[in-house]
């Protein structure tokens, strides 16, 4: 596989649009960016004079902070906009909000939105580059990239690893982005969740689907736990938290089935005692805190690669 030297698109809307070479380029660049975070002065002038707008239509503390930190470390000017009190609440359409922001000529818009496809619709009308920081239940590309970075850091590779992804599959954008990424780089993936939370057609992505946690964990090198929201109990998806934890909760006993040196990941925030036991979240398998730290480096890499040149 040849390494790419640039990203083909001026947006990062989803892992679906990237090829393996571009994924590799982002991860390699993130390595160099991670080193910046180890310096006494954690700043480089690379994006000096560039304007980045963080357009968050959905609340998010950790992803927003991670992006802000990444932008500031690259010396970009950053503006944050959350929807509380903004014109969106007053009924302004998505494209009108975007056009208003465009009038301020940002170079990059980092966008999180509750509706799948919102960044794609925006990309059709915006001049700025758009980074999808999570759209509905569709994709969360920088999360999958930082997950891949963390796996590579711990395991030295991605290809050929067995990765189990467990939880509320149908409502998870982290799942979809990770499915695209892991299948593109040659990992083997098994997904697991209650039958009521498995969306149809996943087998077409070349992954194994099971409702049996033990089977999913068997020989897994990487275990990714997804968050299960309490709303699911009301939507007739699940009878109770207790039953979910019994059938699908990750405990140290369950981890015995995984491969030796297996790692446990979680995109956060965790529901301790629902999808994951505290002894696992805080235990020797867990790389959850590494994920957070790597998020800044990966986001710096994406910002850098999308920001190049005036007329790119």
């Amino acid at each position: 596989m040849t390494t790419a030297t640039a990203l083909r698109s001026r947006h990062l809307l989803g892992i679906e649009d990237l090829d393996a070479a571009e994924i590799d380029l982002i991860l390699e660049t993130a390595l160099a960016m991670k080193e910046v975070g180890a310096r006494p002065i954690k700043k480089v002038p690379t994006l000096r004079g560039r304007t980045v707008v963080n357009l968050f239509f959905e609340p998010s503390t950790r992803t927003r902070m991670s992006f802000e930190l990444a932008e500031k470390r690259l010396s970009a000017d950053t503006l944050g906009m959350t929807t509380v009190g903004s014109s969106v609440v007053k009924g302004e359409t998505l494209s009108d909000t975007a056009r208003t922001i465009e009038a301020m000529a940002p170079d990059i818009i980092v966008m999180r939105h509750g509706s799948s496809g919102a960044p794609h619709q925006l990309a059709r009308v915006c001049k700025a580059s758009i980074i999808n920081a999570g759209d509905g239940t569709h994709e969360h590309p920088t999360q999958a990239l930082l997950d891949a970075f963390t796996i590579r850091e711990r395991k030295g590779r991605l290809q050929g690893l067995r990765v189990a992804i467990v939880g509320d599959l149908v409502h998870s954008r982290v799942l979809r982005s990770n499915l695209w990424l892991l299948t593109k780089v040659g990992a083997s993936v098994v997904v697991c969740g209650p039958a009521t939370l498995v969306p149809p057609g996943l087998e077409r992505m070349g992954v194994e689907v099971t409702n049996d946690l033990d089977r999913a964990l068997d020989g897994a090198d990487v275990v990714m736990m997804l968050r299960v929201q309490h709303e699911r109990m009301h939507g007739l998806f699940l009878p109770s938290v207790r039953e979910y934890f019994t059938l699908f909760g990750l405990t140290p006993a369950r981890m015995k089935r995984a491969a030796p040196e297996a790692i446990v990941m979680h995109p956060g925030p965790m529901n301790r005692g629902v999808e994951i036991d505290s002894d696992v979240a805080d235990g020797p398998w867990s790389v959850i805190l590494d994920q957070v730290a790597n998020g800044v480096a990966v986001r710096m890499a994406v910002l850098y690669l999308l920001a190049g040149g005036e007329d790119s």
Partner: peptide, 13 residues
């Protein structure tokens, strides 16, 4: 439509 396309596009089917 509830199917493989909506599943991967993150749209309720």
């Amino acid at each position: 439509h509830e199917g493989a396309v909506a599943s991967m596009l993150g749209l309720k089917g």
